[in-house]
């Protein structure tokens, strides 16, 4: 079947099997491999992408369901003026180790900040509780997302 999905601002029209998962479509058809697969039960969140601005687990969305939507993957986080504040904060605050969960974590973080410009520690922990990390113990992930929020707030106050 024909699906038309805008991924990171580019339109991708493809003929896919109806059963194709969005994550496989992104990784194998479109060739963007920053979105990862860590489980098969929608538990780990490594496959998180933003669909029309909301985080979804792309292993549990069919490519067909994403037809007509705008999808943002980790490759689309960076803007014309450089890294997204979440990306910068993840490296500044040592929010990643192996890096496998990182794309999903950053996308959830970016989405949280867009909705809640001043998230508390618990706000962040709750927001990322659908995303597993086995390396960091989460402390620096939480810190990074809060750092990014503070920087975004600071730059919008300053402008």
């Amino acid at each position: 079947m024909e699906v038309n999905i805008t991924i990171n601002g580019s339109e991708h029209a493809s003929d896919v099997e109806p059963r194709t998962l969005l994550v496989d479509h992104i990784r194998r058809t479109v060739g963007l491999t920053g979105t990862h697969v860590g489980c098969d039960t929608t538990s780990c969140g490594a496959c998180t992408v933003l669909m029309d601005g909301k985080p979804v687990k792309a292993c549990t969305v069919l490519a067909a369901q994403a037809d007509g939507s705008e999808v943002t993957t980790v490759e689309g986080l960076k803007g014309a003026d450089g890294l997204h504040p979440v990306q910068q904060a993840f490296t500044d605050d040592h929010g990643l180790q192996c890096g496998f969960c990182t794309p999903g974590m950053m996308l959830v973080g970016a989405s949280l900040i867009a909705e809640n410009p001043d998230p508390s520690d618990d706000d962040v922990r709750w927001a990322i509780s659908g995303n597993l990390c086995r390396c960091t113990g989460y402390i620096n992930i939480v810190k990074a997302i809060r750092t990014a929020a503070a920087r975004v707030a600071e730059s919008s106050n300053g402008s």
Binding site: T33, G34, H36, L83, Q87, F90, T91, F100, T102, M106
Partner: peptide
């Protein structure tokens, strides 16, 4: 020192096993 490996990982440019095609 900030980690050198981060640059590729935060931009989705890591090269994990399943990324090899």
């Amino acid at each position: 020192v900030q980690r050198k490996e981060d640059a590729r990982l935060i931009e989705g440019q890591g090269n994990f096993l399943d990324d090899i095609d």
